[in-house]
Simulated scan of single mutants.
Amino acid sequence: MRGAGELLASARAGDGEAFRELVEPYRRELQVHCYRILGSVQDAEDLLQETLLAAWRGIGGYREGASVRTWLYRIATNRCLNALRDAERRPHGDAARRSEVPLPEPTHRRAEPSWLEPYPDVLLDGLADHAPGPEARYEARESVSLAFLAALQRLPPRQRAVLVLRDVLGFRAAEVADILAATENAVTSALKRARAALAPDPGWAGTPLPDSPEERRVVAEFTRAFEAGDVAAIVAMLTGDAWLTMPPLPLEYRGAEAVGHFLATVALREGGRRVLVPTRANGQPAFGYYVRDPASPILHAHGLLVLTLTGARITALTRFHDNSLLPAFGLPRSLRA
């Protein structure tokens, strides 16, 4: 196996296979990094490819005093910031805004919709084992949770990048300044503002471990209740301050009563067969959601549903309507009943 120095020399000489070996260990973590900043799996994959292409074209300018990893993060971060400046990269998703039935008045309405997409856990499983630096403040699971990602998307792009680089990845202030071509004072100031705006999630410490007996029990109970259309059973599983959101709709239903009313009047308003197919997203239990077509034995996909848990209770339900997300989770668009 060739060392990094030999791979770098060969890549600079035009050896594409050497370049692939040099950057491959960082491919997955770079994709997750782009996802944290952009909030979109599809955009993250596009920006990852742009990053690797830019690295290949610019490898002659690589400064050997910096690590390959830091060099790639510099390219990826600045590509993401450039993408965020381009409003045209964001889909407007008018179809996602429509509903088959009138929606009840939300308890809260955001000024702007969130374009956040869920991230398949199967991709997180492929992350290289890079321990975050000593500056990191967030645990790995917390840093990909939907609550954390949604809060990140509300930060200005540069603050978002600084917080991810410093508090999630643990880069030092001097390294972040180099990545962003900024001063350390500017990085420190941006981080201070980002931390002030990004309130920590107090309930994360009580989240069951993935695939633990407690999590499996909650998932099984929720599946039975949802497929049976038992709103009362679902409400009994919610915390009092539970909330429901449906990105990209800028609507939030907060409190067990409001969530229950939404389920009774919209999601579970009629009989018929519903099926939840388990998967995982953002380190959380998730389901492909399918509804029986009354005219055929086919169950059609109705998006993805993600649960946020605290202990044995559900604190949030996030419904993603976009069926184009399903293939990333290995889920079909339809099932035979």
Rank of each mutant, 00 (worst) to 15 (best):
M1I: 05
R2E: 14
G3L: 02
A4C: 07
L8A: 06
L8G: 08
A13K: 03
G14V: 03
D15I: 02
L22R: 10
R28E: 12
R28Q: 10
E29S: 12
Q31L: 12
Q31N: 10
V32R: 05
Y35H: 03
S40W: 00
L47D: 11
Q49K: 08
E50Y: 08
G61A: 07
G65S: 11
S67E: 08
V68D: 00
V68S: 02
I75V: 06
R79T: 03
L81Y: 09
R85P: 11
R85E: 15
D86L: 10
A87I: 03
R97Y: 08
R97L: 13
E100G: 12
P102E: 12
E117S: 01
P120H: 01
D121F: 00
L124D: 02
A128M: 07
H130L: 10
G133T: 09
E135N: 09
R137F: 06
R141D: 01
E142V: 06
S143H: 02
V144A: 01
S145T: 03
F148M: 02
L152V: 00
R160Y: 07
A161F: 00
A161N: 00
L169T: 02
E175L: 06
D178W: 15
L180K: 10
E184M: 09
A186P: 13
A190S: 11
L191E: 15
A196Q: 14
A196L: 15
A197N: 10
P208L: 11
R216F: 03
E221I: 09
F222H: 04
R224I: 13
A228I: 03
A228V: 01
D230A: 14
T239G: 14
A242E: 07
P247N: 04
P248V: 01
P248R: 03
P248M: 07
E252K: 13
Y253T: 04
V259T: 10
A264R: 15
A264S: 15
L268I: 13
R273K: 15
V275A: 11
P278W: 07
P278E: 13
N282K: 07
G283P: 06
F287Q: 04
S296P: 11
P297T: 08
L299C: 15
H300L: 12
T308E: 12
F320I: 02
F320P: 01
S324C: 09
L325S: 04
G330T: 04
L335C: 07
A337G: 08
A337R: 05
